[in-house]
């Protein structure tokens, strides 16, 4: 469906928008592009949309290289962070304007599907934030695009509304078999909606894989950091092992030397003979309790049921990764 081959776009001498990005998106697939602000994800989206032209590389939609096509020739749809609705048009007119053949009955059916059944005559300013985002989505679907681009579409919504809406939209997109490139900086959103995740850092795609796998086995430090819930401890690796508690634990990543050991809050569990530590802070979370535990190697946050001031012995629940500190983008 969509294929990017070594696409690069720079902004001036010192700023790289995206560099050598290659990725592929299959029919009906939702690919989340996850990354921090300035990582190049919106630039990537704008390159696909045709708002920007790449300096190098190819962008294929189907069999055609569309890199130099005008935006209106690409048959795409875009769902924007700020909705970008047309203030002078009614909800229904938004759909009719972008349809290839204006079909009122079809448009009304679509509005019904996205939960805007009785609001077809309203203008954007008469709608709530969630309703506006639904109009933006309905407009995107009405255009019958080959691909929908979503640019942090829920970031302007409150967290509770955001959680419900993103699941609803993902289901709708899957049900209609629409391919989507979904840019977000919210790891929960990426995990919830995407069939695959591409993590971007400093203009490059540093890992692209199944969301659960990127979360559990990040290929780079940047990929690990993109999902949050991360502890980083400076360690010395010797023979692929790190001293832990009364013994050693095997690690993946570098085999010898100094590095940063990365693990999620849930990767340490209480276990006799593990690294001893004292609970110095307790935080209430949604469905879990988080504790800050002072270990010999440093303080870590762990998902743990323990009381303030108690002593716990912690051991890793799986293979932990150690990354080189020199170049956080590369797995050493």
């Amino acid at each position: 469906m969509l294929r990017l081959e070594r696409v690069s776009k720079g902004f001036g001498k010192d700023t790289t928008g995206v560099a050598e990005v290659s990725l592929e998106l299959g029919p009906g697939e939702i690919l989340a592009v996850l990354g921090a602000s300035g990582s190049g994800k919106t630039t990537l989206l704008n390159l696909v949309a045709g708002v920007l032209r790449p300096d190098r590389g190819k962008i294929f939609l189907g069999q055609a290289d569309i890199a130099q096509w005008m935006p209106e020739q690409r048959r795409l749809a875009y769902v924007f962070q700020d909705h970008a609705l047309w203030p002078h048009l009614s909800v229904l007119d938004h759909l009719l304007l972008v349809m290839k053949q204006a079909n009122r009955k079809e448009a009304l059916g679509l509005l019904e599907q996205v939960g805007l059944g009785s609001l077809e005559n309203r203008r954007p300013h008469q709608l709530s934030g969630g309703q506006r985002q639904r109009v933006a989505l309905a407009r995107a679907l009405a255009a019958q695009p080959r691909l929908i681009l979503l640019d942090e579409p829920y970031s302007a919504l409150d967290p509770v509304l955001r959680e419900g809406l993103r699941l609803e939209v993902a289901s709708l997109l899957r049900a209609r078999g629409v391919s989507a490139l979904h840019v977000t900086h919210d790891p929960d959103e990426a995990l919830a909606v995407a069939s695959r995740v591409a993590v971007m850092s400093q203009g490059r795609v540093v890992q692209i894989d199944d969301p659960a796998r990127v979360y559990a086995q990040p290929a780079t430090l940047a990929a690990a950091q993109a999902f949050g819930r991360l502890n980083l401890l400076p360690v010395k690796v010797s023979g692929g092992r790190v001293a832990w508690g009364s013994g050693f634990i095997p690690v993946q990543g570098i085999r010898e030397g100094l590095g940063l050991m990365a693990f999620r809050y849930e990767n340490l569990q209480p276990q006799a003979g593990g690294e001893p530590g004292r609970v110095v802070e307790v935080y209430a979370g949604r469905g879990e309790q988080l504790c800050q535990v002072a270990l010999k190697l440093g303080n870590v946050v762990v998902a743990l049921e323990a009381t303030l001031g108690s002593t716990v012995e912690l051991a890793p629940s799986g293979l932990l990764s150690v990354f080189s500190q020199e170049n956080p983008l590369d797995k050493s």
């Binding site: 005008m70 209106e72 972008v98 407009r139």
Partner: peptide, 23 residues
Amino acid sequence: LVQVGQLFGLSSLRAWWRIGIPL
């Protein structure tokens, strides 16, 4: 907003006529 219209496949002229000029 006119550019958004073009992203949705409207020609430049139509996007200006239906979106830009009324606004």
